[in-house]
């Protein structure tokens, strides 16, 4: 820490299905959304003296990896090559990567040992996981204090399948919502609404006192719901 006001760290984590079915319009919307999010968060970071934003992008298909092998990177230094799609949809591999980073720094994760703001996590998928191993991995995730505290959103891309909606609902639990994106042309804007609204609300109240985080997550959900309600007026 130097002679400056210390900043809180706010992690924005995207878990993106890059299996074969996501190819084409879907992944190109996701790629554009990530670029736009990056630009917005850089500006928000400059404007906001309280918070530094860190981005983590986890892609999962047959295997899972962090974009550019970076488990997290400050938005200012974030470089992005388009995500490409192929293979199966092994969600459990994505969950494993998520669990890997949702630990304190002293335990090998990216979350601070002291303090910290609960992260924003977004899971995007257009189909049911290839195997059922994701259930066991979700149990592990639910044991992580940072996962429990995180605001979590699931985006169902052109899904008309209750079983897969159930997977997303289990992921968000009581700490977020599942958004039905019934046309991939909307995907970019839906991702942006969620990430940008949550980042704005969380960064503006990042140093509230003890016991306020639950109210803060409710406030995020309320703001996102209001923003999404205006979706029809956006003229997409």
């Amino acid at each position: 820490m130097n002679d400056r006001i210390a900043k809180e760290k706010l992690n924005v984590i995207l878990v993106v299905d890059t299996s074969k079915s996501m190819a084409g319009e879907r992944i190109s919307q996701v790629n554009q959304a990530i670029r736009d999010i990056k630009d917005y968060l850089v500006n928000l970071q400059v404007e906001n003296s309280n918070v530094d934003f860190y981005l983590s992008i986890i892609q999962f298909s047959t295997e899972s990896s962090f974009i550019n092998d970076n488990r997290e990177v400050n938005v200012d230094k974030f470089k992005f090559d388009n995500l490409k799609c192929c293979g199966w949809s092994n969600l459990h591999c994505g969950y494993q990567k998520l669990e890997e980073i949702l630990k304190k720094q002293s335990h090998g994760g990216v979350m601070p040992d002291f303090g910290g703001t609960s992260p924003i996590i977004l899971l995007l998928t257009d189909g049911h996981p290839t195997t059922t191993e994701y259930k066991d991995e979700l149990v592990n995730l639910n044991n992580s204090p940072w996962f429990k505290a995180a605001i979590r959103y699931g985006i169902a891309i052109e899904l008309h399948d209750k079983r897969t909606m159930g997977v997303l609902k289990d992921f968000v639990g009581d700490n977020g919502d599942v958004i039905d994106c019934y046309s991939s042309s909307m995907l970019k804007n839906i991702i942006k609404i969620i990430v940008l609204t949550a980042s704005k609300v969380k960064s503006s109240s990042a140093t509230v006192g003890n016991g306020q985080v639950i109210n803060q997550n409710q406030l995020v959900r309320q703001e996102i719901n209001e923003a999404l309600a205006d979706v029809d007026q956006w003229g997409w």
Partner: peptide
């Protein structure tokens, strides 16, 4: 209290810098 530890974020940084 967390007013001291939070700005340093990690055990390593708190140890080396404070």
């Amino acid at each position: 209290t967390d007013g001291l530890s939070t700005p340093y974020q990690s055990y390593d940084n708190l140890n080396e810098s404070f």
